[in-house]
């Protein structure tokens, strides 16, 4: 069961890399958050960490419902075209994503030497999620992609934390959620302002600001 969900996380990450439109990207992110929520719930039912119940509820509330809603609202309000803007086309992106996954596998092998395979897979997926989030931030032009890439990376970090140590302390978890939430709101405003100023949220045009 866990394995399937973890692979589902990886699959949504690939889907985000190969997404062509903003709404697809947000939708895939919502799916990823949902998988993460279920995974946390499963961990919680194992009974080791009762705090995980509330964490999974928080994930559901914030990452599955509120953040995607905000993002959808922003993308509707600024009424730019749906195209994400590619430095690297989706197919090539997918191939690079595969290479990055392999790299993550090697890395996980280095970090979790001599431990059970399940942990290694967890590690691989979370490293991949971080790398792919970063990848989206780098190779997509729209400012919204940067926001979502950052969130995807955060998901990866969360997965790694819960896989290797059964989650961070509850207080830290709450703080991180709050952080992410505020981060999204600020970035949302930022995107909005960029759009007003430049009539585009194409971040690659920001280098016009350079003196």
């Amino acid at each position: 069961m866990e394995l399937f969900i973890v692979l589902g996380l990886l699959a949504t990450a690939y889907a985000m890399v190969s997404a062509k439109r903003v709404s697809t990207l947000i939708g895939n992110f919502r799916l990823q958050a949902l998988f993460l929520c279920i995974l946390t719930l499963i961990e919680a039912t194992k009974g080791n960490h009762p705090g995980l119940y509330s964490v999974s509820i928080l994930i559901f509330a914030i990452k599955v419902i509120i953040i995607p809603l905000i993002l959808f609202r922003i993308s509707e309000e600024i009424k730019v075209n749906e195209n994400l803007g590619f430095f690297i086309p989706p197919l090539l992106s997918l191939i690079i994503a595969l290479i990055l996954t392999y790299f993550s596998w090697v890395l996980a092998g280095m970090v979790f030497t001599g431990q059970e395979t399940m942990l290694k897979i967890f590690g691989t997926v979370s490293f991949s999620m971080m790398f792919l989030g970063f990848f989206i931030m780098i190779f997509r032009m729209k400012a919204l992609a940067q926001v979502i890439g950052l969130l995807a990376m955060e998901n990866g970090i969360f997965l790694l934390a819960s896989a290797s140590s059964g989650g961070m302390p509850f207080l830290v978890e709450i703080a991180v959620f709050f952080d992410v939430f505020i981060g999204v709101i600020i970035l949302g405003l930022f995107v909005y302002r960029i759009n007003q100023l430049f009539t585009s949220i194409d971040v690659s045009k920001l280098n016009r600001l350079k003196g």
Binding site: F131, F134, F135, M137, I138, S204, L206, L209, K210
Partner: peptide, 14 residues
């Protein structure tokens, strides 16, 4: 190397 492009800076980090 300072192009002013956010993407490139992110790339440097990666």
């Amino acid at each position: 190397i300072q192009t002013g492009s956010i993407h490139l800076y992110l790339g440097y980090i990666l």
